[in-house]
Design a binder for these strands. Structure first.
Lengths: 142, 142
DNA sequence: TTTATAATTAGAATAATTATAATTCTAACT
DNA sequence: AGTTAGAATTATAATTATTCTAATTATAAA
């Protein structure tokens, strides 16, 4: 077979992600707004921009985008996974009352990576902190 | 089935958890060994000690025990939730190669709770750190 | 014992995710 | 432009995970 079987949108690198129209639509949904949509919510939104898109393609695309490092999967509790547009290292806060998930960055977290690696004996790749508490809205309501 | 399906532990407080035989069986499974079993794995093990137990009761019991603070639910990725016998505040390491989940305690984590609360604007309840990396076994294999 | 309350069970129902197979699309090569 | 190879998409089926419902059984209280 030929040398380049695959077609890149831009020729930036050897493993440049291929953004098909469907994948782009999915990525756009995850990137628009600062919510952390579930696969079902992404499907709902994506089909507005692209009525023919299927649920399977949304899952395929999310997996692809995740592996390409363009979105991040966040799981908590036993519900559906949520998808995060923020792919840089960051931390999460989860509301114990309403489930709201918020991103924030705490520079101090990375400072613990060495100690965490020592304590767990793992070879570290990344760390993140999860804060559980009441979001501003729910705190007010109490 | 048998005779007495209910037995209270000690009379410590007004909201003392009621540990029925089934709940006790589920709790014992989570507490034995240092794995983090899924609900299905708990069911498999629990039925050895108690052949008649149903999947629904395992789920009910896990939810009950979680709410009573006797076990903890840990979710990551899009697979099944896992259950952790360790209920004191602690941190987790997840192997990016094989999925192994390990508990450890990093005293420094709690030191970040104030900063995390400020950054997120949440009223803090708990924090924990998640380290992603290679577990000792997988590191060796590379 | 009668009554009330709560737990357990079996199984159905729902939700979430993944796999399969057929079809369509894309771009590299005639 | 036509052909082709392989990837992507689609529709659907299958699987996995979790929750709900209704009937039954157990426990505790009166």
């Amino acid at each position: 077979m030929g040398k380049s079987d695959k077609l890149s949108m831009k020729d930036v690198g050897p493993t440049e992600p291929v953004l098909t129209r469907q994948r782009k639509a999915v990525l756009d949904v995850v990137r628009s707004g600062d919510t952390h949509p579930t696969a079902a919510e992404v499907f709902e939104s994506a089909r507005k921009a692209m009525p023919g898109i299927s649920f399977a393609t949304v899952y395929n695309s999310l997996r692809y985008l995740k592996e390409a490092g363009l979105v991040r999967e966040v799981a908590f509790g036993s519900g559906a996974s949520r998808y995060d547009r923020e792919t840089d290292r960051h931390d999460h806060a989860i509301c114990s009352a309403c489930g709201t998930l918020v991103d924030f960055d705490l520079p101090g977290t990375v400072g613990l990576i060495g100690a965490a690696a020592r304590a767990s004996r793992f070879k570290p790749e990344s760390v993140h902190l999860t804060l559980v508490g009441l979001c501003p809205g729910c705190r007010e309501r109490k």
